[in-house]
Design a protein around this nucleic acid. Structure first.
Lengths: 168, 168
DNA sequence: GCAACCAGTTGCAATTTGCAATCAGATCGG
DNA sequence: CCGATCTGATTGCAAATTGCAACTGGTTGC
């Protein structure tokens, strides 16, 4: 049985998520649709070490933010899914992106998705969360894909950036 | 010159705030009106160690989230103030409180303020941020004190809790 | 059968954390 | 003026965490 520093909701949230990597892993599963160990290991720009990734995945599963299941048709592979509590981190991640966009040297291309979600407001967050529930919890889908819209905006920004860098 | 893991706004935010203590310090300055080293050291329930507090204060000043100035009339004492970027963390902290309130074993009394801010929505956050600007940046005040309302609700919850525990 | 791929594990050095004790200067009470 | 207390820290040390690189035991595709 674990003990907590205090009963403060902010402090308790920090005890689960207050480190440099946990939210990066959740971000990649959430926005990057990475569901396997290898995807998460090699897919992110930040370059997480394999032991740290293994530890964080275990910790997040224990904390009830992720579930791990076997991949049918690939015996050794595990699939990680977001749980409802993890999906409810969307507003937190949006605010985090919003703050980072204004107060850190974030690149334009990587900020496009953050801005889109920020501008969309709670209604868009809600639609995104519904989409995540469909993907990760198997609930029925409805409405257009927010994820696809984010991805499209991101790729468009990348294309503009590269054409601006190398104009022909 | 420092280098960053990536240009992602979420990752960059985590590089500044992604640890167990930085946001606790900011929370205590913001909601607890603690402005001195000793207040911060002894005032919080979580029991931060003095060397960690000293390190975090230094780091937060370096990161531009706090300013440190001399206390007139108490030569040795320093006053720490929030900067505009730190004040803009209000929505992030509200979402953090909201998530913790729903998804961690937070106590009722300590969740009252979080709920009030959450229910108040962006308009209340904005009023609160204006109040913080008045307190920490010296800008002119207008409107009723959000901080006083939060504190009042908190103390009422404490009183109710203790009378429920020891009914006479 | 074998190379490539899978999810991790292991060993190790460096860093960070947490605790207790300590510090020098400032202020207070008498 | 003098000891006691308060100030914002610093120091030493043990334990835990982090990060890197190499490795493991098994699986899959050809």
């Amino acid at each position: 049985m674990k003990d907590f520093r205090s009963g403060c909701p902010i402090s308790l949230t920090l005890e689960v998520l207050g480190d440099r990597w946990s939210l990066i892993v959740i971000r990649d599963i959430m926005f990057g649709s990475r569901r396997h160990f290898r995807d998460l290991l090699t897919g992110s720009e930040e370059g997480i070490a394999s032991n740290i990734l293994a530890d964080r995945l275990k910790r997040l599963v224990d904390a009830g933010l992720l579930t791990q299941e076997a991949d049918p048709g690939h015996r050794q592979r595990s699939i990680y899914s977001l749980t409802e509590p993890a999906i409810e981190l969307v507003p937190l991640l949006v605010q985090m992106g919003a703050w980072g966009r204004r107060n850190t040297p974030a690149t334009k291309e990587l900020s496009v998705r953050a801005k889109l979600l920020e501008d969309g407001g709670p209604k868009l967050w809600s639609a995104f969360m519904d989409e995540l529930r469909a993907i990760h919890l198997g609930s029925p889908r409805n409405g257009p894909s927010v994820l696809a819209a984010l991805q499209h905006a991101f790729e468009k920004a990348i294309a503009e950036q590269s054409s601006a860098r190398k104009p022909r």
